[in-house]
Amino acid sequence: MQKLQKIDDFLFVVFNVMIILTSVFMTGLVFFLVLSRYFFGSSMIGTLEMATICALWLYMLGCMVASRNNEHLTVDFLEQSIVRPKLKAYYEISKSIIVFGISLFVLYLASEMLAWALKRPQTTPALGIPLLWQQASMLIATVFFVTYGFRDVIRAFGLLKTNEGSE
């Protein structure tokens, strides 16, 4: 368990560093586009393409961190209204299983995208960068969605155990 915790901490740092890097590059590239237009008269083809590649990674890293921290927008009044610990545990178990199931479906969709990308590879229009470089962000993200979904299921069952101990 402690080892998993360490891996998670490490990954969290990696995600945050990557969020910072992609944000800086994305902003820098778009800003450079504006500057180059005024100082060099012409804008470099492909600047926006690189900026959107950074953006896509940023989007997915943001999604992953939000999933890790369970910070996705949620309507929580049902959760708030359940006070009995045991009922709450059952509620959390059911909810986490639903999310986990849905995340498996999303993983399936992502695998279809990967299969298609391997069957018919594509490149970006201006720079000819393989599209898979961008799509990889979404593929990785969905793997983490499933992982965090599974983690939440385990946690929810843990809730049941601690309650049984206390009762």
Binding site: G41, S42, S43, I45, L48, E49, P125, A126, G128
Partner: peptide, 24 residues
């Protein structure tokens, strides 16, 4: 003169060869 181009090769290159500044 700066003109809008489609970003598909070799359209921007063509317009630049025609002397224009391009923006996708």
């Amino acid at each position: 003169i700066k003109v809008r181009v489609q970003p598909f090769f070799p359209i921007p290159n063509t317009m630049q060869a025609l002397g224009y500044q391009t923006e996708a």
